[in-house]
Amino acid sequence: MAAALKVLLVRNPTTAETLRLARVLAHAGRGPMAMTVIGQLMRSTLSVKRTYPSDVDHLIVVHRAAPRPDGEPVTLATLADADMVLVGLFGSEVGDNPEGTFSARPTAGRTEAEVNEAVRLALAAIKAEMPSHLDPEKSFIMFHCCPTPIMDYIIKEMPLLWDDHLYEMYASDKAPTQFGVHMGSSWVDEQTGETFFVDRIRVSDIDYMLAEKTVDYEFDYLEFITQTYPFTELNCMIRAFPKGVDPATASHEQGEPAAWATSHQDFSIGLLATRDKFRRRKLAAKCVEVVSHLQIEFMRTHFPTVFDDGAMPLHSFGMVKHGNDASVRTMESCGFRKVEGHHFQWIGIKLSSI
Rank of each mutant, 00 (worst) to 15 (best):
Y153I: 02
S352Y: 04
H343L: 12
M319C: 09
E218P: 01
L59Y: 00
E289V: 07
A258P: 10
F344W: 15
V215W: 13
H252S: 13
V198A: 15
L8C: 11
A22T: 00
L121M: 06
M1A: 09
S316Y: 11
R329E: 14
R20Q: 08
T36M: 14
R120A: 06
I126N: 04
P106K: 00
Y208I: 08
F143V: 05
V61H: 02
K174D: 13
D199Y: 10
H63Q: 06
Y217W: 14
M209C: 08
Q295Y: 03
A16F: 04
Q227G: 09
R30A: 07
L314A: 05
L314W: 06
M84Y: 01
R329M: 11
A3F: 10
F197S: 12
C146R: 05
V181Q: 03
F241W: 10
T177S: 14
G31L: 09
M42Q: 07
R64C: 09
S353L: 06
S54Q: 13
R11E: 15
L19I: 06
A125K: 01
A34V: 08
M33G: 06
L351F: 12
T14P: 04
L76D: 00
I38R: 00
P13K: 01
H63F: 08
V306F: 06
H58V: 00
R329L: 12
L351D: 05
R64F: 03
F219Y: 14
L210K: 04
A211G: 12
H252F: 12
Y208C: 12
